[in-house]
């Protein structure tokens, strides 16, 4: 989506505005809405609404960051690329995307972290997951259970974030990382 709107500034403005507003909506609220939205199809409980809520929520930062990243590429670089005879496609793949990787990747990272966070609510509608330990633990005043849940979830969140940071580091062109 980010790629699509990056060359269509008119639509982009709306999409980015909507995405920004959507991102301020609390995840639990969006989650609740999803559950209800899927209820008529007898899918109100379980995996489907969870997965769709997470997907929608994750779309936002990825779209937004991809768009912003592609647009921040300096016009003189694109001009230079055009000057040496690159096609539109080549400019996208050889210039714009490599230069945008840090920002795009951080969008993906935000999305994944948010996904982990939203997934903790899944247990509320019987989709299971680590959130179960916490919600059930709080409900039963079982401190050990809550603690186990908390540790596992944060380990997952931090771990995934760390791995993605490594991936980001790995695929970012070296020239962008050199410190002056």
């Amino acid at each position: 989506m980010g790629f699509y709107i990056s060359s269509r500034p008119n639509i982009a403005k709306y999409v980015i505005n909507v995405a920004s507003i959507m991102m301020t909506i609390p995840s639990l609220a969006l989650y609740g809405v999803m559950v209800v939205a899927f209820a008529p199809f007898k899918l109100g409980l379980g995996i489907v609404p969870s997965v769709s809520a997470i997907t929608i929520y994750s779309l936002l930062p990825i779209t937004r960051n991809t768009y912003l990243a592609l647009n921040q590429v300096k016009p003189e670089m694109i001009e230079a690329a055009r000057g040496i005879g690159m096609s539109k496609n080549q400019i996208l793949w050889k210039i714009k995307i490599p230069l945008s990787i840090p920002v795009i990747m951080s969008g993906i990272r935000i999305a994944v972290v948010m996904g982990v966070s939203v997934a903790t609510y899944a247990s509320l509608i019987a989709a299971g997951g680590l959130g179960y330990f916490i919600f059930a633990g709080i409900g039963r005043a079982n401190l050990t259970m809550v603690l186990v849940g908390a540790i596992l979830i944060s380990a997952l969140g931090i771990g995934v974030n760390y791995i993605l940071l490594k991936v980001e580091d790995w695929i970012t062109p070296k020239g962008l990382k050199v410190k002056r």
Binding site: V116, T120, I134, V146, L147, A150, I153, S154, G157, N161
Partner: peptide
């Protein structure tokens, strides 16, 4: 790193 910890964990 802390930004990647879900809020539910802190609440817990």
């Amino acid at each position: 790193a802390a930004q990647s910890v879900p809020s539910l964990v802190i609440i817990a």
